[in-house]
Amino acid sequence: MKNLIIRGLSKTYLDPYAGAHVTAIADVSLEVVQGEFVSIVGPSGCGKSTLLNMIAGFIPPSRGEILLDGRSVKGPGPDRGVVFQSFALFPWKTVLGNVTFGPKMRGVPREERERIGREYLGLVGLAGAAGRYPAELSGGMQQRVGVARALANSPDLLLMDEPFASVDAQTRMTLQEELTRIWQERRPTILFVTHDVEEAVFLANRVIVLSSAPGRVLAELPVPLPRPRVWAPLVEDRDFKALVARVLGMVRPA
């Protein structure tokens, strides 16, 4: 099983302006089982993105260890796909060029990788946009490309860093529903970071609540809501509302 195991993870960095050490993450331990969809939710500035960046290998932890499939994480790698809040698409590559970038780096021959690229573009509903440049697409479409690009590399773990925070509210709901559909179809392992409690509950099988700085694990709650998940009935659902209220109570103590 390709599980993610995190033990005693901490991150302290030097604030160049305050001239003091700041602890962003303090002693976090958690596990994500293969095929799971886990949300991490917490107030702004609780270090949840720091946590994600450490798992992605972009920044080194100060203490503790991160194991994926039993191997220690030493830096960024194609076994962990990342979807960024700012999309981070390559502006000089077409949509297809972006999605096939990962397979190209693995040395997959052109025809094969274009077939893979088109398959994943189809999965996110962008089969017709293959030849366009990212700047010619709307924000919602750009992030679909971002998701397709990360998935096309068949990573063991998909890390999503507030991916829908910079699109408008209606598009965000559509994207959230699509993400749950894709997860049901393909069962990728997803770790999803957000400050939006409703989003966290709507998407995940399990929600991990972080405290404000320094970030610690406050609680882990299972989300026993049935799938497929669709906003229209769910906003009225009593279980959903109760769960959201409970998490909100932890994120914003009165």
Binding site: G75, P76, G77, F90, W92, R149, A150
Partner: peptide
Amino acid sequence: PLELTRAAQSLGAPRFHILLEVIVPGAL
């Protein structure tokens, strides 16, 4: 942008490819 380099890294791009496919076009 730092995120572009990070995106390329996490897609498995080696240093030389990051230079060629991310840094140079980004500096264009």
